[in-house]
């Protein structure tokens, strides 16, 4: 019983990280129809910036804020320099552009930071909490609550605020949105900024547990992309559920079947789900925007 609980704790912790990354994917996709393969780079920028600032003696929370700001700035630059000029490009071009951007950012980080592995101490110490035979790190709770907070915020923002509705309107019909007076360019900038901020925040929160280095972005993006598609692209609920599901599948497979094939199990589940429901768990039908 305590075993199962430990597996669940592990799965939810890891899944919450995937979910946060997937929420970043969702944000950009909703506004622009682009799946941003450079999303993992935001996570790394957040983690590395925080690690370097903390190592320089900057207080943890200030470092965290600055790291999120750094990620946000890169997100806006990514939109302005790489995505906006390529508007209306076919899907495959957008995939190549965002992958190209991720390779570029990796190269840049290798210059700005270094090639070492970094971490800093958890925000609430390192003493594990024990309950019913299972243990959890305080930082894992930060990660889990952080992801839920991001989810709740995005859901509220997109449906309840003027700016959020502007983004949704821009996504569904750019021309019509512009005609009713929505500043579509601003809406796009905002969605990239938010997405990058979410990614960088995920990096800031997870680095004490997962560690970070300049080149882990691809793997993070792959997991986040998988979670996004499992949940159904464009749906915040889908991103959350997809992320948690993949985390749980991995930990339960590692715990009960074979740790060798835990990543394979996640992909098999994705393939099976897509064969049955080609639009993912929470996706809308006919979301094709290519």
């Amino acid at each position: 019983m305590s075993e199962l609980l430990q597996f669940l704790v592990s799965g939810v912790t890891v899944g919450a990280i995937y979910a946060a990354v997937a929420l970043g994917f969702t944000m950009i996709y909703n506004a622009s129809g682009v799946v941003n393969f450079a999303q993992g780079e935001f996570v790394v920028i957040g983690g590395l910036t925080a690690a370097f600032l903390i190592a320089m003696g900057v207080p943890v929370f200030l470092a965290a804020v600055l790291a999120v700001v750094a990620g946000t700035v890169v997100g806006i630059l990514l939109y302005r320099l790489a995505i906006r000029p390529a508007r209306e490009a076919p899907l495959v071009s957008l995939i190549i552009i965002t992958i190209g951007a991720s390779i570029f950012l990796r190269g840049a980080m290798q210059m700005v930071f270094d090639k070492q592995i970094h971490r800093y101490d958890g925000f609430s110490g390192e003493t594990p909490l024990r309950f019913a035979g299972a243990t959890i790190l305080p930082q894992s709770l930060w990660i889990i609550f952080g992801s839920f907070a991001v989810f709740v915020f995005l859901a509220w923002f997109m449906s309840r605020t003027r700016a959020g509705r502007g983004i949704r309107a821009t996504a569904s019909n750019r021309l019509a949105a512009a005609l009713v007076g929505i500043n579509t360019r601003w809406a796009m900038n905002l969605s990239f900024a938010l997405s990058a901020a979410v990614g960088a925040l995920a990096g800031v929160l997870s680095t004490p547990v997962t560690f970070t280095s300049y080149d882990v972005g691809v793997l993070i993006a792959l997991k986040g992309f998988s979670a996004t598609m499992l949940g159904g692209v464009g749906s915040p609920q889908g991103a959350l559920v997809g992320g948690l599901l993949i985390g749980l599948i991995e930990s339960l497979t590692a715990g009960y079947i074979s740790s060798d094939y835990k990543d394979a199990a996640a992909f098999i589940v994705i393939l099976v789900v897509l064969f049955v429901r080609p639009e993912g768990l929470f996706g809308k039908k006919l979301t094709e925007r290519v």
Binding site: E3, Q6, F7, V9, S10, G11, T13, V14, I17, T135, S206, V209, T210, V216, L219, I220, S251, L252, A254, G255, S259, D260, K262, D263
Partner: peptide, 14 residues
């Protein structure tokens, strides 16, 4: 076993 970028190995260690 665990993957090179895995975040949590408590299931395996358990």
């Amino acid at each position: 076993t665990y993957g090179p970028n895995d975040a949590d190995m408590t299931p395996q260690l358990t």
